[in-house]
Amino acid sequence: MSRLALTRADEPMTAARVGIGGPVGSGKTALVERLIPALQTRGIDIAVITNDLVTAEDAERVRRSGLIDPERVSAVEAGACPHTVIREDPTLNIEAADELERRFPGVELILLESGGDNLASTFSRDLTDFWMFVIDVAGGDDIPRKRGPGVIRADLLVINKVDLAPHVGVDLGRMQREATEVRGGRPVLLTNCRRGEGIEAIVDLLEREVLFRK
């Protein structure tokens, strides 16, 4: 081995795998639908995997959205326990990701939506390089205080549906502060996926943390 070329940085790269988990109905698919165009605008080559219980409902929704080539959206049926296929045995999802990389060489980022679950669901590091946990304002501002593993361990906590805060009597500033506190200062971002607000900040973070573009 040459003494000067002792680095392997010229190896071919695989796509960054980014997980999106969170309770049922918190807005995971809505976030995927916002992230797709935001990532594409920045020239990032993407693909999507969705996990549903027994159907491919979310996959169909994303395919029909017209936002992305339907071929680039894969569905994994999670069965009754959505966390099993992202944590204990992520083989099905790993295969789906490998398959997308084979079919679309050059894909840089694969978004992987987990089926809606509870506050304890987390992603295996074998499956994702970075994962976010999406909760929503309407679930109550005490969610961060409950310190669920999803809230604590995710690389990014997204608090969605901020537009609903006034309607459900949630103090957003406090919710974000408490969330940041229980997470030891790691990132917490606010979004309104209905109107597409707060999405750019997530893309900025992904560009830095896993795409290494800046």
Binding site: A16, R17, S124, R125, D126, D129, F130, R153, R208, E209, V210, F212
Partner: peptide, 10 residues
């Protein structure tokens, strides 16, 4: 330790 399994990180 929690990040040890990651394949991409900054």
């Amino acid at each position: 330790p929690a990040d040890a399994g990651r394949k991409r990180f900054r």
